[in-house]
Design a protein around this nucleic acid. Sequence first.
DNA 1: AATAATCTTTACAAAGTTGTAAAGTTTTAG
DNA 2: CTAAAACTTTACAACTTTGTAAAGATTATT
Lengths: 148, 148
Amino acid sequence: MKITALEEYGLRCLVAIAKSGEQGQLSISEIAEMEGLSIPYTSKLLSILGKAKLLDAVRGRSGGFSLARPAENINLMEITMALAGPLMDSNHCEKYTGLLDECVHLDNCSVYNVYSGLAGYVTEYLQSTTLADMIDESITGRLQRMKI
Amino acid sequence: MKITALEEYGLRCLVAIAKSGEQGQLSISEIAEMEGLSIPYTSKLLSILGKAKLLDAVRGRSGGFSLARPAENINLMEITMALAGPLMDSNHCEKYTGLLDECVHLDNCSVYNVYSGLAGYVTEYLQSTTLADMIDESITGRLQRMKI
DNA sequence: AATAATCTTTACAAAGTTGTAAAGTTTTAG
DNA sequence: CTAAAACTTTACAACTTTGTAAAGATTATT
């Protein structure tokens, strides 16, 4: 279980845009500059977030990206799903890669059960944290100790 | 954030050994057979778990693997650490891969804070679940709804 | 002592992820 | 209506993870 690069850097870009204010808009090159990322990579990150409808993209000369919804209304679970997908495939037990036709535990899989419980737990945490929470200076330092 | 293949299949092997009883011992080929995995792959998984001191390995003709400690005393956090390492590198903010010499958020990183909080949360869940819980038929089906 | 069963280590091909590069499309300013 | 600024798409090299393969080391049995 690892946090992926897309998740980390994609979230940074969202935070940067959220920090630019209610109707704030930033271009790829502005964000790349602010976050110290390359323009092509920033471009890829924002493109993913745009397709996931978390960002609105405006093309052309005065274009850029802005939040598709208010920061209070975008939670980390949506962001994580857009950038990395679910913790475990929903059809986990069918996607077994071993030698047999299907997993021997299909009927009662304790591994699936425990990871499924964990996934629910993680989801609770991520859903309860919004972009607005992340740019709120008064609580940002405490997020690491927060227990929802 | 994805559960890795090593985590999943490694945990399965541990559960299989735990199910074999208190002083139970299983060979690589037995476990491979039981779980429907190839012998080389099973071999790799068990080798990792042995190096992490979660399993004792006995070589030679009547050899095999057994739990290094009672199942009640091996929790999922240790297993996850052995098979996948931490959710986020401890020196996360130093390992930034962007264009600059160092991350622009080194002093106050909301992304780090929030993932750090999540990591603590996940750790709680994993530490509170043991191999013994996973082979206990009476609760295994309920693990997925358990909130610690 | 020889042998067979078993764990151990190293090497490697296939697949997926990360980050870069370049060419294409849209829009606004002048 | 042209050109510059900006988003979009596709391709690809480098790296990591996944799973396989083969040769080596250890021990119980005969």
